[in-house]
């Protein structure tokens, strides 16, 4: 393939290295050296991830967790132009400002759908295993170029703005990544099997309503713990869905699977473990309460879980 996802790992690594350098030079940050070390470690993961010994990468992750956990990662004072300047610039550029912003979704979709099978000299244009990421990477680069052209700013200024946003999100930015690691470790250690064992041996599944409720609520709870419906589904489908709902009560397997996965998604809406959906936006929107997005989602998630249980029960 011509456009490999590794190129964007390197690009991102370079961006994080820039964040580290700028943090080290930022005297308004009370912990500038430890902050710089944190981002330098993260940059290494992207720049040299394939070369690192697994134990070294694990130790680096641990060092980052300790740096963040004991208050070593702080933000500097952001340097943005005053609101009047931004307003004046908005009046001057008008809807043209939207163009680079809309390039990101538009080009991503274009690359991931129309250009996905394009080959040049027998080589695929895009990394087939990470198609969306490669497409998003291209779109982001084109968007930066368009934004620089439109505003006559330098690419370095774009780097400074990226640093401002990274700095504002601070350590919350690596939380989804570390949770994903924990999820993989859970799988390796057999947490899923243990939960399924507990769920199936201590709850009687003889009545259809109880079985349906255990299946749906179990999927939601499991997802709340693991942060990912994909990890919960195989366990609950194998433990309750297929043996009890399909074989014993004769539910259509397609419905069991589809409605089960949606029950898991109800769990995703309610857990800090799904940090990229729930914690990152709170940081991006400058919300003082880290769990504000989860609190906004619970009143949608719970009635929907109830609807799922009713839907599956009707099908028996």
């Amino acid at each position: 393939m011509i456009i490999r996802v590794e190129y964007f790992y390197w690009l991102l690594g370079a961006m994080l290295a820039l964040v580290a350098l700028m943090s080290a030079a930022d005297r308004s940050n009370p912990r500038r050296w430890t902050t710089a070390l944190f981002w330098a470690l993260y940059a290494t993961v992207y720049l040299a991830g394939d070369l690192l010994a697994p134990e070294a990468a694990g130790a680096m992750m641990l060092a980052m967790a300790l740096l963040a956990g004991f208050g070593g990662v702080r933000s500097g004072k952001p340097q943005t132009p005053p609101e009047e300047t931004r307003r004046a610039s908005a009046v001057r550029l008008q809807h043209k400002l939207l163009l680079p912003a809309l390039i990101i979704p538009a080009v991503t979709m274009l690359c991931a759908t129309l250009l996905k099978d394009v080959r040049i000299d027998g080589l695929f244009l895009f990394d087939q295993k990470h198609l969306t990421l490669a497409a998003l990477g291209c779109a982001s680069v084109i968007a930066v170029a368009a934004a620089c052209w439109l505003t006559r700013a330098t690419p370095l200024q774009a780097g400074r703005e990226a640093r401002r946003l990274v700095d504002a999100m601070s350590w919350a930015l690596v939380l989804p990544h570390m949770l994903a690691v924990l999820g993989l470790l859970f799988t390796e250690a057999g947490v899923g099997k243990a939960v399924a064992h507990v769920a199936t041996s201590y709850i009687g599944l003889t009545s259809p309503l109880v079985a349906v409720a255990v299946y749906c609520i179990g999927l939601a709870l499991f997802t709340i713990v693991m942060g990912n419906g994909f990890a919960a589904f195989p366990v609950m489908a194998g433990g309750v869905g297929i043996p009890v709902l399909v074989h014993q009560f004769g539910i259509n397997p397609a419905a069991m699977a589809a409605i089960g996965m949606f029950s898991a998604y109800c769990g995703t809406l309610m857990t800090p473990m799904a940090a990229n959906f729930n914690i990152i936006p709170a940081a991006l929107l400058d919300l003082p309460d880290r769990n504000a997005v989860i609190k906004a989602q619970i009143p949608t998630a719970l009635p929907l879980l109830f609807v799922n249980i009713v839907l599956l029960y009707i099908l028996i």
Binding site: R86, L97, P100, A101, I104, L136, S140, A143, V144
Partner: peptide, 17 residues
């Protein structure tokens, strides 16, 4: 990467209103 890659373009556009 999904939320890191767009940051540079978005940050720059925010600076310009």
């Amino acid at each position: 990467m999904i939320y890191l890659l767009p940051l540079a373009a978005i940050g720059l556009l925010e600076r310009f209103g």
